[in-house]
Simulated scan of single mutants.
Amino acid sequence: MESDGLLSTVVEIVTKASDSAATGMASGAAAIVVDLVRRRLTRSPEGRTALAQVDESPQEPASVDSLRSVLARELEGDDAFRAQLTAAVAGPPPAHQPSSIAHSVVLGSGNKLGRSQISLGPLTINNTRAARTSLLVSAVVLAALLSFVGYMLADTFSSGESADVSNQEICNQATPLRAQVADTDTATYAAHIGEWRNVVDLTMRASDARLARYGRFADQHYRNLGNYYIPLSNIIDYSCGGDASGITDIPAAR
């Protein structure tokens, strides 16, 4: 996809996601695009400002232009980031359709099922109940292993982001949000959920290891919460005043 086309598509996805924050944001490939953009833009003050503007007024031309300008600078000269967005926009490839199915054994090209044997490429297995059960168990174990490896790789890459955000910067970003949502209804929380997610993204990158750990915990458990006052207050109390009472006894967060 050409750079201009990619930029326009990504900006449209992000603005539409911000416009539908009250209904749960984007899903599938669009959610991956939004997550990539938010994680990238929260690294700079200009990016955080652009995200806050588009969250507040996603249909405002000035907000869209600001997001486009900042995102264009991030894409310029960064082939890896461009490739990530291109892949996310394209979505996963279509699932392969098997050639045939017999007795719940999927057969592709070069594979055969006979009355007494199952041939899978160079491998031949006796076609018995025990053999079929063994194949099924092996497939389940392999699927679980691949899923675990994928999760670990994703966690490694996400935790590899630079930890360069000071407690004071997080305090400055989070404090105004608490004043906006305190003693309000769920609609108000939903209207400001983009700002809350910006706070969570910043907290995960805190140079303070304890605060960053709580940021990852908040990302796992509170990112899409309808009322996020308590985790927001915990972040403010610690980043602004050093009060760790709200973030000490949390489960291990990767």
Rank of each mutant, 00 (worst) to 15 (best):
G5A: 07
L6Y: 05
L7D: 01
S8H: 13
T9W: 11
T15D: 05
T15V: 13
A17I: 04
A17Q: 08
A17S: 11
A22P: 14
T23E: 10
M25L: 08
D35M: 00
L36N: 00
R38I: 01
R40N: 02
R40Y: 02
R43P: 04
T49P: 06
L51Y: 04
L51V: 07
V54N: 01
D55H: 09
P61I: 15
A62T: 14
S63N: 09
V64E: 11
R68F: 06
S69N: 14
S69R: 07
V70F: 11
L71R: 00
A72E: 01
A72P: 01
A72G: 11
E74F: 01
L75C: 00
L75Y: 02
E76S: 06
G77P: 00
D78R: 05
A80Q: 05
F81T: 08
R82E: 03
A83V: 15
Q84R: 13
L85F: 00
A90D: 12
A90Q: 15
A90T: 12
P93W: 04
P94F: 04
P94Q: 13
H96I: 09
S99D: 10
G108C: 14
S109L: 08
N111W: 06
K112Y: 03
L113C: 06
G114N: 13
R115V: 13
R115M: 13
Q117L: 14
L120I: 14
G121L: 14
P122G: 07
T124C: 10
I125V: 11
R132V: 13
T133A: 15
L135C: 12
A143R: 15
L145F: 12
L146R: 14
F148C: 12
Y151A: 07
M152G: 15
M152D: 09
L153S: 12
L153P: 14
A154L: 13
F157K: 14
E161C: 04
A163N: 14
D164L: 09
S166H: 03
N167D: 05
E169L: 00
Q173W: 00
R178K: 10
R178L: 09
Q180Y: 02
D183N: 05
T184D: 01
T184E: 01
A187H: 02
Y189H: 09
Y189G: 00
I193T: 04
I193S: 03
E195I: 02
E195L: 06
N198G: 04
N198K: 02
L202D: 02
M204W: 10
A206T: 03
S207Y: 11
S207T: 08
A209H: 13
A212W: 08
R213Y: 11
Y214V: 11
A218L: 03
A218P: 01
A218H: 10
H221F: 15
R223Y: 09
N224T: 01
N224P: 09
N224G: 03
N227P: 05
P231H: 02
I236Y: 03
Y238W: 00
C240T: 05
C240L: 02
G241T: 14
A244S: 10
G246M: 02
I250T: 09
P251D: 12
A253H: 11
